[in-house]
């Protein structure tokens, strides 16, 4: 403990909350409150209504939510498989550094540019994907693969080789060691990575906005479209739906993780 006197500690905490709450908690509260209002030009929002939610849970909006969920699921699955595969295959091999570098690159490249590059690459034969949902999923997968790869290779580095060696000395071949020992031991990290990939994909806007076809409009684009035409309050309701969905999925994933750890 750095500050020992009680009064000083209180003062520090007060300053902390004064910084933390407005900066981090306020945005959520404000968006949540706005989603229930029709006007806001005082300390509190006015014109309480559930209309925005009625709109946000029906018709177009529910399509957008489904689109986002499907995109995030597909992209996370692709990213997880690719990232895990690369991390496992590169472990202990000389290619490790190169693979690590390649898989970290998508973080460094601006998402908008990733979108542009897919647009440039897949707007012509042989792979004409422009205007399909596939191109959106691919973009998301590219953008989140780095996180999956990084999480898994960090977990692999932390994994005590004694487990694999014990398994091998008991007669387990590489495939059995992978399926029965390594992957189960990596499960907590894999699920954490899956959660992160899913959340990032749910909120992805930069590349999506370059690529989305009219029949595949994810929720963030919908939020942007709403605010862009001035419908801030219904945009807020859509944003709340996005946040709550993401949060629920994260919660479910972390439940799985706790179970995996405490088994």
């Amino acid at each position: 403990m750095l500050v020992h006197s009680r009064r000083a500690r209180r003062a520090v905490h007060a300053v902390f909350l004064a910084l933390f709450l407005p900066v981090f908690a306020l945005p959520f509260l404000v968006v949540a409150a706005a989603s229930l209002a029709t006007r806001w030009s005082g300390i509190l929002p006015a014109g309480v209504t559930l209309d925005h939610y009625r709109a946000a849970t029906g018709g177009d909006a529910i399509d957008a939510l489904t689109t986002s969920l499907l995109t995030a699921l597909a992209a996370s699955a692709l990213a997880l498989v690719t990232g895990t595969w690369a991390a496992l295959a590169a472990k202990g091999s000389r290619a490790r550094r190169v693979v690590g570098l390649l898989f970290m690159l998508p973080v460094a490249v601006p998402s908008v540019v990733v979108g542009l590059s897919l647009l440039v690459a897949f707007s012509r034969p042989p792979l004409l994907l422009n205007g399909t949902s596939t191109i959106v999923v691919l973009a998301h997968a590219v953008l989140v693969t780095s996180f999956a790869h990084q999480a898994v290779s960090a977990a692999l580095d932390r994994l005590d080789p004694a487990y694999e060696q014990a398994a091998a000395s008991l007669g387990a071949g590489p495939v059995r060691v992978l399926l029965r020992v390594r992957l189960p031991l990596l499960l907590p990290s894999l699920s954490a990575a899956a959660g992160l990939c899913f959340a990032l994909s749910m909120g992805e806007l930069s590349a999506t906005i370059m690529l989305y076809p009219p029949d595949w409009v994810p929720l963030p684009v919908k939020v942007f479209a709403a605010t862009d035409r001035g419908a801030l309050f219904s945009g807020a309701a859509l944003a709340v739906v996005l946040m709550v969905t993401t949060f629920l999925v994260l919660l479910a994933v972390s439940r799985i993780r706790t179970r995996a750890v405490h088994r």
Partner: peptide, 27 residues
């Protein structure tokens, strides 16, 4: 959790706080 939410939410919130018809100006 904060890390996993999209960045534009912040701007959206700020629009309500400091926007032309937001809390601060309303006050």
């Amino acid at each position: 959790v904060f890390l996993s939410f999209p960045s534009f939410l912040i701007t959206l919130a700020l629009l309500f706080v400091y926007g032309t018809a937001g809390i601060a100006n309303g006050l």
